[in-house]
Measured scan of single mutants.
Amino acid sequence: VIAMPSVRKYAREKGVDIRLVQGTGKNGRVLKEDIDAFLAGGA
Rank of each mutant, 00 (worst) to 15 (best):
K26D: 11
G41E: 13
A3E: 05
R29D: 08
L31Q: 08
D17E: 07
E33W: 08
V30R: 03
K9W: 09
A11G: 03
R12Q: 15
P5G: 10
I2R: 10
A3K: 05
Y10M: 04
L31W: 04
K26Y: 10
D17I: 05
G15K: 08
A11P: 04
R12W: 15
A11K: 01
L31M: 12
Y10A: 07
V16W: 01
A11M: 01
V21R: 00
A40T: 12
A40H: 12
R29P: 02
R19H: 11
N27P: 02
Q22F: 10
K9C: 12
K26Q: 12
I2G: 07
G15T: 03
P5F: 04
G28S: 06
V7Q: 02
R8G: 04
A43H: 14
A3N: 05
A11N: 00
P5Q: 11
M4N: 15
N27L: 09
Y10V: 07
K32R: 13
A40M: 14
I18V: 05
V30I: 14
D17Q: 05
G28R: 07
L20F: 10
R8L: 14
V7Y: 02
K9N: 09
G42S: 14
G23S: 04
R29A: 14
V30A: 03
R19S: 11
L31N: 07
G25L: 02
V16Q: 01
I18E: 02
R19C: 08
T24H: 06
Q22T: 14
G28W: 04
P5D: 13
P5L: 08
A37L: 12
D34N: 06
K14Y: 07
I18P: 03
R8A: 08
Q22H: 14
Y10T: 06
S6W: 10
G41V: 13
I35A: 00
R8W: 12
V1I: 12
P5R: 11
N27Q: 10
R12Y: 15
F38E: 04
G28V: 02
L20R: 11
G42D: 13
A37V: 09
Q22A: 12
V1D: 07
L31H: 07
K14C: 10
S6D: 15
G23N: 02
V30T: 04
A37P: 01
R19T: 12
R29E: 15
A43C: 11
R29I: 09
K26S: 10
T24L: 03
Y10W: 03
R12T: 15
S6R: 09
Q22E: 10
K32F: 10
G25H: 03
D17M: 04
R29V: 09
V16A: 04
A43M: 13
Y10R: 06
A11C: 07
V21F: 02
V1N: 08
A37R: 14
R19G: 09
A40F: 10
R29W: 10
S6K: 10
L20Q: 13
A37T: 11
R12M: 15
G42M: 15
L39R: 06
V16Y: 01
L39E: 05
E13Y: 09
V7R: 01
D34E: 00
A11R: 00
R8H: 13
D17Y: 04
G42T: 13
N27C: 12
G42I: 15
L31G: 05
E13L: 13
D36E: 06
K9D: 15
R12P: 02
A40S: 13
R8D: 08
E33Y: 08
A40W: 10
D36C: 06
V21N: 00
S6H: 12
K14V: 11
I35S: 00
K32S: 06
V16L: 06
V7L: 05
